[in-house]
Nucleic acid binder design. Structure first.
Lengths: 212, 212
DNA sequence: TAGATTGTTAATCGATTAACAATC
DNA sequence: TAGATTGTTAATCGATTAACAATC
């Protein structure tokens, strides 16, 4: 398959398709159409078809896309077939929740270990070790880690970010609600709960006003 | 202030401005320009100025926007000044992490209680109670809750979603990686870690290929 | 064959960026 | 006054949607 340029908007929709396709009982259907997929996810069918055209090895008119092949195509495109190793900084509640979540394996993500200034929790609990932050650099180097997950309070996020970059990390996934300054070629992905809350809050305000 | 129509794109950027403005030491500066704000957040200054024009009560050329007033304007616009009560369904690790996070108060969000099929954890720990799911309906009705947070596994998300709607909830914040079918006027906001991972994964793939 | 569906090309829509006049 | 900055109007850009030919 030729790898075409793909926009971020399309990229963000792919996991949704994948998740739905995988939820279809194994063996129940052999093919699925863009129309069916669009209806299930409440989307426009043209958009789905156009998105799939970018990643799939092709569907057949009247029949649709072969289910298993389509799943494989999307997974391969997203790189879920080869796992990415990551380190997590900040073993608070959220950090430990992510550390213990086994579902990331589905997305090709493997959190090797967590680091914290006070690694209090017994490491055995979730099988994943929690080290002191001072061991971060050597760990990243020996394991050639490319991805870092930041779950420390906002005021320490930039500092942790700088450390990660110094350790050779190329992609950062941050749960801290602060902007991170990074050099080019380093990608920061903000998991920003505040933006979601803004959208929800605005919707509820409108609802309440409507009622009045 | 006249409340104009605001797009979702603008809405999603507002929390970022707010967070940065609040991080400025109290009393250190009285005004801030769109230029300064843009530089700090790595954005275009025109975009910042245009966004602020929609929510602020006005800045002055050469001087900028009065800091305190701007913060108030954004908070008021986002509705952070009057708190929203919410219930959380699914007291697993993630659920408990959210339940125990005190930072939501800043966004006007107040999680009243959590519900689970097996409310194992001792309620006293985080001060927030964890009830059995059977008590959800009466609780929502008596407290007039409008927002529900879903942190159950994907396979139970739709079921929980339906229950919440039956209880009168108008906005749903879901952490489950599945599409939810809802009637119109109900807003679903997906906190989809899978989309973030897709973006990160794609970046790393490109990085690795570049190296070869 | 007829009709559903794919995939592509063109049109529309919305959001971002650029240009510029107004102002302190 | 000069220059930085605001706020608005116009131009560009990108993404979504519509139209349609190809195909099974």
């Amino acid at each position: 398959m030729e790898r075409k340029e793909i926009s971020k908007s399309v990229l963000k929709r792919l996991p949704g398709y994948l998740s739905y396709l995988k939820s279809i009982p194994h063996g129940s259907v052999s093919h699925i159409s863009a129309t069916a997929l669009a209806n299930a996810l409440g989307m426009g069918e043209v958009q789905v078809r156009k998105d799939l055209a970018l990643v799939s090895s092709g569907g057949r008119p009247k029949i649709g896309y072969p289910l298993e092949t389509l799943i494989d195509d999307i997974e391969q495109f997203l790189g879920y077939d080869n796992t990415t190793d990551a380190v997590l900084i900040g073993a608070g509640k959220l950090g430990q929740a992510l550390l213990g979540y086994s579902g990331f394996a589905t997305y090709g993500l493997n959190i090797l270990a967590a680091f914290d200034i006070a690694p209090s929790s017994e490491p055995g609990e979730d099988k994943k070790p929690i080290y002191h932050i001072s061991e971060l650099a050597s760990f990243c180097r020996t394991h050639k880690v490319l991805m870092g997950i930041i779950t420390v309070p906002g005021e320490h996020a930039q500092e942790v970010c700088d450390q990660l970059i110094a350790c050779g990390i190329k992609a950062i996934w941050t749960f801290a609600p602060t902007h991170l300054d990074v050099p080019p070629h380093i990608l920061v992905q903000y998991e920003n709960m505040a933006t979601s809350l803004a959208v929800l809050s605005m919707h509820l305000q409108a609802q309440i006003k409507e009622k009045k």
